[in-house]
Nucleic acid binder design. Structure first.
Length: 270
DNA sequence: ACAGTAACCTGTTTGC
DNA sequence: TGCAAACAGGTTACTG
């Protein structure tokens, strides 16, 4: 569920609780999520200090002197800061135990990941070939325009590809295409530079706005304190199939693209 | 290199 | 009411 705004909301939420804190122990109750959880995580992190909490795309990076714990929340993951005595529930797979609290990973569908690297995390196989951060200056219309030449894939699948740009998932891709009036099925290679300008602006504004509101909570996304985000109230098309377009009142239509639902306005988006 | 599809899971909602 | 199918915020791996 978490897209970039939800992961960034999580990062900002957990950072003040764990940055500079010493790990007392690591408890893994599950052998594997998407991939096996590294054994000996307790040995690696016990008595180590968390020196920074970073994000790259939808990956969270908990740095320490000997290495980095890489966490991905997948579709249903969330991190919470709990009291040291809170009882772990059914889908609570990993605890990073500190003196005053526990950082607890919950992930019912187990599409998430917990990985360890003792090298530069950005050179890790899964991170090395990621596209630019959408909120950084390097993410421009010119970049998307050039990257999309001769690509026949639809624009929606194109911007959801993390090797093109990170952090744009189904909700925000759907919203950004509506805002920039681009039809989600249009071939990425057949979109003009001016239209990419509109799209890039929309992506940046929508992601920034969602972070400001603490992310989108549809069903079970929660912040580190268990509270929801408030961006769902600002969604204009996602989840609104058959309801009237907020611009022209024409009923919104849905289709499937790469196993994901896309909702769009047949009148406004071309 | 690119495009299309299946796969990994569980919980909740929808439809007969 | 019951049950099966469909659906859910992600991403890799495999095939052609």
């Amino acid at each position: 569920m978490p897209e970039l705004p939800e992961v960034e909301t999580t990062r900002r939420g957990i950072e003040p609780h764990i940055n500079g804190q010493t790990v007392l122990s690591v408890v893994a109750r599950t052998k594997k999520l998407r991939w096996p959880i590294p054994s000996q995580l307790n040995k690696k992190l016990c008595n180590q200090i968390i020196t920074s909490v970073n994000r790259r795309g939808k990956y969270l990076l908990l740095n320490s002197e000997p290495g980095t714990l890489i966490i991905h929340l997948g579709m249903s993951g969330s991190l919470r800061v709990t009291t040291p005595t809170a009882i772990a529930e059914k889908h609570d797979h990993v605890d990073i135990v500190f003196k005053k609290n526990i950082l607890r990973l919950r992930d019912p569908r187990r599409f998430g990941a917990v990985l360890w690297t003792s090298k530069d995390p950005l050179s890790h196989k899964l991170l090395a070939s990621l596209g630019p951060e959408p909120l950084e200056e390097e993410f421009t219309a010119q970049y998307l325009y050039q990257a999309s030449r001769n690509r026949r894939i639809s624009i929606k699948e194109f911007i959801m590809n993390s090797h093109i740009v990170v952090g744009v998932g189904n909700i925000y891709a759907t919203e950004a295409l509506f805002t920039s009036k681009i039809h989600p099925l249009r071939a990425a290679g057949k979109i003009s530079l001016p239209r990419y300008e509109l799209l890039v602006t929309a992506i940046k504004e929508i992601l920034a706005g969602a972070i400001q509101r603490g992310g989108t909570t549809l069903r079970d996304f929660t912040r580190e304190d268990g509270k929801p985000g408030y961006f769902q109230q600002a969604l204009q098309v996602y989840g609104r199939t058959k309801q009237p377009c907020v611009v022209c009142a024409h009923p919104l239509r849905s289709t499937k693209q790469g196993q994901r639902t896309t909702t769009y306005c047949t009148q406004c988006q071309r």
